[in-house]
């Protein structure tokens, strides 16, 4: 298992918001075709770390990073690295479902259009397969012209995942994708993630430890900007090396 080359890897990654040191030398290797969970109390830097993987932190003013993030061995923070290509390969699902104020079709077709697909037939094919991949096609195939904001929260989040799959990414970053959903919807999204895992590399940030234990293959525990421990989910939850990890996963704080 250790011999599989990692899809995504951070090497001694540091990040500052102004004077605040938010990530402290994080090194983490993420396996392809698996789900990696990042857990930790709020404010520990787990979302910040996730947003380093597609360089969304670049949008925040006064952010400074050093260290490396390697995607298939290439440093995405190297100068001249093309951000639009990076974000096409490494997509992101947000905490609150954020479909665009457009109809269902245009939401899913947005990514392909942005990357230059103009042909209507091709777009229709992409929309259909992307909606099928998230099990929305059945429900929405006759309602593609409906506004996306009129869908239920779960459908909106599924739609956001479809929208992402439409650009054929390799890595899916999920920033607490279920925190705005009810338990039943959460279960459905988790099932969907297990399915998607077979084709994509998934990194999920969650404050919900049960969720991490249920769905992930590997887990990293973060505290105050540091990656305290990283290993198989089973090890982290049953036999952690670090005392702080043990205290967190047994619910002593967090």
């Amino acid at each position: 298992m250790m011999t599989v080359p990692s899809k995504l890897q951070s090497v001694n990654l540091n990040l500052w918001y102004g004077a605040f040191w938010a990530l402290k030398g994080v090194s983490m290797a993420i396996r392809p075709q698996a789900i990696t969970a990042i857990i930790g109390p709020s404010g520990c830097g787990k979302s910040t770390l996730l947003r380093c993987f597609n360089r969304m932190n670049d949008l925040t003013r006064s952010v400074r990073t050093d260290g490396q993030v390697l995607l298939d061995g290439q440093d995405i923070y190297a100068s001249g690295y093309e951000l639009t290509r990076l974000r096409k390969r490494v997509g992101m699902v947000f905490q609150r479902p954020n479909p665009f104020p457009l109809n269902v079709f245009d939401n899913v077709a947005y990514g392909p259009r942005v990357h230059g697909v103009r042909d209507r037939r091709t777009l229709e094919r992409i929309v259909e397969s992307s909606l099928k991949a998230t099990a929305l096609w059945e429900a929405l195939q006759n309602r593609l012209d409906r506004p996306a904001l009129a869908l239920s929260a779960e459908q909106q989040q599924r739609l956001c995942i479809s929208r992402l799959l439409a650009v054929e990414p390799e890595v899916l970053l999920m920033d607490e994708p279920c925190s705005a959903l009810d338990p039943v919807a959460t279960q459905h999204i988790e099932e969907l993630m297990r399915e998607l895992m077979q084709r994509y590399t998934i990194v999920i940030v969650t404050h919900n430890m049960q969720q991490a234990a249920r769905i992930s293959d590997e887990t990293g525990f973060m505290l105050l900007g540091e990656l305290v421990e990283f290993g198989t989910t089973k090890t982290i939850f049953t036999n952690p090396r670090d005392k702080r990890t043990e205290e967190y996963v047994t619910g002593r704080y967090g």
Binding site: L59, L83, N98, F100, Y110, G111, V114, V167
Partner: peptide, 27 residues
């Protein structure tokens, strides 16, 4: 316009200009 719209678009690999005229102006 909620920031999440712009973030969603940028995260799909859209440029700032594409984001502005395809999402923000519509929103």
């Amino acid at each position: 316009v909620p920031r999440s719209y712009g973030d969603g678009s940028i995260a799909l690999g859209a440029t700032k200009w594409q984001t502005t005229h395809m999402v923000l102006l519509k929103a």
